[in-house]
Design a protein around this nucleic acid. Sequence first.
RNA 1: GCCUGGGUGGCGGAAUGGCAGACGCGAUGGUCUCAAACACCAUUGAUCGCAAGGUCAUGAGGGUUCGACUCCCUCCCCAGGCACCA
Length: 1164
Amino acid sequence: MTPYDPKSIEEKWNKKWLDEKVFKVANDAPGREKYYQLETFPYPSAAGLHMGHPKGYTAEDIHARFMRMHGKNVLYTMGWDAFGLPTENYAIKVGRDPHEVARENTDNFRRQVQMFGFSYDWDREIDTASPEYYKWTQWLFIQLYRRGLAYRASAKVNWCPKDQTVLANEQVVNGACERCGTEIEEREMEQWFLRITDYAERLLGDLKGLDWPEATIKRQEDWIGKSEGAELRFALNWPTPWMDIVFATNNRGKFERMKKLIAATGLPVTLKMPADIGVKDFDVVEDGGTASANAQKKARALAALTDLPVLADDTGFFIAGEENLDPVTVKRNALGGVDEKTLTVEEVAARMQEYYQAIAAKHGGKADAEWRQTLCFVTPEKAVVCEDAVRPVTLTAERRGEFDPTLPLRGLYIPKPTGKYPAEETEEEEMRELAPIVDAVKRLLTPSIKVFTTRPDTLFGATYLVLAPEHPFVSACITRGAIDNLDEVTAYAEAASHKTERMRQEEAKEKTGVELKGVRAVNPATGEEIPIWIADYVLGSYGTGAIMAVPAHDERDGDFAKKFGLPVRTVIEPLFTDTSAEGAVKEGVPMVERNAIMAIVKHWSEEKYIGLQWKKVDWQTLITGGPENGQTAEEGAVQEILEETGYLHPKFLKKLGRVHSQFFHIPKQVNRLAHFDVLYFELQDDARREISEEEQGIHEVKWLTPDEMDRFLSPEAHRFAWREFLGGPQLYTGPGVLTASGDLTGMDSGTAKRKMVEMVGGTMKTQYKLRDWSVSRQRYWGVPIPMVHCDACKAAGRGDGIVPVPDADLPVVLPPLENYRPQGMPPLASSPEYINVKCPQCGADAKRDPETLDTFVDSSWYFLRYPDPHNAAAIFDKDKVAHWMPVDLYVIGAEHTVLHLLYSRFITKFLHDEGSIDFTEPFTTLRHQGLIMGADGAKMSKSKGNVVNPDEIVGQYGADATRLYLMFMGPFPDSTPWDPKGIQGVERFLKRLWRYAEGAIEKKMPASDPGAKRALHRAIKKVGEDIPAFKFNTAISALMIMLNELEANAAAPLALADFADLVKIIHPFAPHMAQELWSRMGNGTYLDFAPWPEYDPALVAAEKIRLVLQVNSRTKDAVEADAGITAEDAKALALANMKITAALGGAAPKRVVYVEKKLVNIVI
RNA sequence: GCCUGGGUGGCGGAAUGGCAGACGCGAUGGUCUCAAACACCAUUGAUCGCAAGGUCAUGAGGGUUCGACUCCCUCCCCAGGCACCA
């Protein structure tokens, strides 16, 4: 046989595998179970393959080949995530078309990947930058748009000044661009967003049950960042209410009624009609819109013409099965174009009746309706202060009767709650009708601040409010100049607006803020007036942008209060729960509540205090005990001091706070919930009486300095009490028992949360940190956004003028562009041929959206394409995807714990909801690969010069050796440095294996030596267990151990039949060599479809064992023994052993421990 | 600050309650060779000892156990993540 020549062997088999399409996988393979392995498709950079790529790929290839040998039909593929910034930037640098550059990069990657011999089905190769693929990315985007999950919004976005594009939150790392490291800026821009937040709860909930690394699940949970809490309203004490409000109606009658009503409330407000402020025409009500939307439009239109706040109202109703109709539309429809003024009231009523009957008839005479009144306010700042106060009024059965087509309608309006035409209503009825509007006016005049809190139970301790500097109320204050320290507030808000979130975070150590002087809020629980501050430690983008500050029970609020001298009010007495092994609360044991005392006792002359060291349990405490019935806490404490220490003259000085503690009371065997009063005493003198023997046995009295005491006390409750005694009120953020909280005092904080919210009329609310996904990119090399902006449609009121490109016109092909460099505007915008298009909806001149999609959109669905990669008619065939999905195994770098995985899960859930797929999670099992560091232990980078080039390594050692070393370096999920010498170890192994194979194939032994066969079978077992567990390093070690043992008897190699098994278990790791040997053994088949060998349990379990003999756990000897040896015999064997008897030195064994098949330990 | 992982020879690492350091790299000595490379053999945690044998060793300290790298407590250090999210 020839010497081992990896180059020729590898080239030969790589070619055969490709040419013969050995790994082409059929969608349907009778008798073979499907197994879908997803490979992280690479971003083909100009730098070529990084060693990290083949590390993950080798692991999956080993696994894929292993699964095939276990009879699975394995879908295992490769593709290219070819769109993206680096390629574009590189193309700019070298002055070429990104299309060309990308193709070359992809070709180079393909060549490099193929030299490793990965067993992909190359017929399923995909490329996200090919129109065949991105047609469906565009299609997907349009589906999201149609479901309202893709929308345009103006938002503060992360702008990378170097790349001239927007980045998703997830792509900003430490305030810098993930790709190029440039510090990002914040810009206000109109962007496309995907509404991933709609899926927050499901994205969180479905994480349970996935076979994913814990840490990754945790990171996704943190990213979604759910917190459950409440929204509470703090009314403002506002000394300068608005005096004038414009009522957005031209109906004089309606106006007069409203004016009367408002006057009746006594509020200091004057209602004006638009005409009063010189506005004649503002009515923008259109056909078809909902009453709510129309009311808002009207109000906004009017607000644009005035500085006064605007009150809008409208009424409307809904008829089951019909579009939402506003009264204007209904009346217009009913009158059929006839001018109302030419008709009598009766005639109008008759037409309405007729129209109504028609609707009822259409629904089988059962038209059901719901009446709504809608209102909104628009302030001078154009912000909607009180929006869309829709009051649905479900009609009563009696009222429904009025819809009986046989009954005449009594008014022009479709029935209102009173069922009367306004003119017929009594004042009282009308009052009731307009009550929601009057309420809202009141609210406008006494504005309030809404806060989000997870601790509503601490409301009594809220001593001030803090608003984010960008809170709308702050700008309202500034605009109206309604506060006393206008300049100061303006300066602070101004300064904050120029800081990025990044800068704010860097300054996080020191809290800053300014009080809004002249305004105060009312704590809804205490009724107390509290100050309002603005500070940038409160984020405008989370919750309501405002918080109630509870400095006693929140660290940040505590810091802030300390710095600005704000009041701190303790409202939670801490409850500590013992979590130690013995002390933890036990399930199924009753909880006994008890009042107790804790006494701090000072020495009569020194600065020392009494601590108790318990003797039977590992406790160090203060003096504690339970007062007996009828005793006051003070009396009880005096008694405990006497009993436990013998001191006769403690002088009570003061009562400190209370602490609570729950734990398992070991002596009493019950769960104890103890409520401690903490009392402080000083001893008058050293007079002391002998303490009982019983007490002496329980604990010992220790005199400790304050420092010693702090270290001494073990239970948290005691330590807390001590620290509070020494340092005053301590910040406590945990659960506890309410104090100084009115009626809720004494309640546990958990229960109090709900009660408090109920009490002050707040609402329970869940918040998420997750934000919508910004997907617009102002760059060239990406998927064009398949949308058209049509001014004609917009002017005609057909939505916002955004029209999706019809499916038939997809893909919108990315045009070659002479100059595709970013110039502050998206490159595509500079191409008239591309940008100018006829509107697909109305045919007018329109413009294409000039932006491209974030490449994470491309990769968020690629795993759905492999099952049906060439489908030109649909994104995929449902049956094929149903067959292959979900992915059974996905190996991915640990850096992809949030972005790609979260987006893919979102898209999967969306397609599930669309009915395209029937699963909700794409990746069942996920494994992470560790990084390959440079030889210097640092991350590989060109600048450090520690990059290892796969071409060179494979060229020098061969693909098999490279694969083997990549897997042998260390545990697969760990990051390990590349050791240039290390690969020589596995190279030697392969050469030795080759030589051994030579002997085995040439000698053709009739039977294998039992020892050799045992070595083989041990390896079969270990490798078979380690591959599915991703423990490739130990699997390879097992193969080496096997070879070491086989070589000891190289003269008598394994018989061919056994050697074949050896070749099979080597095959997943070094497929080229294994296949070559297999072929040289005379096989014409491919090893991939040979069944994995089974190990013989009898062979693996040796008949002889090594029994370790110990004296006092020190090994003295190790002897061979029968595997089936009994405990008795083993012990006897040990006691008879010479080395043991010598070590015993005549001492009598106290105890002999036998561990089955392992050891005998003699204790003396 | 908080949350995850980790900390074992000169190096990568193995062992998840039972002989610590498997396997590999490196190193030292040897065989082969004119020589080198390759290959092969032997040794290789530290320490005391001629040896037999002993002692110390898995970040530090303590605990549980006949027995701890492994379980528990306290602390230190490293890596990664999160970071005013109310």
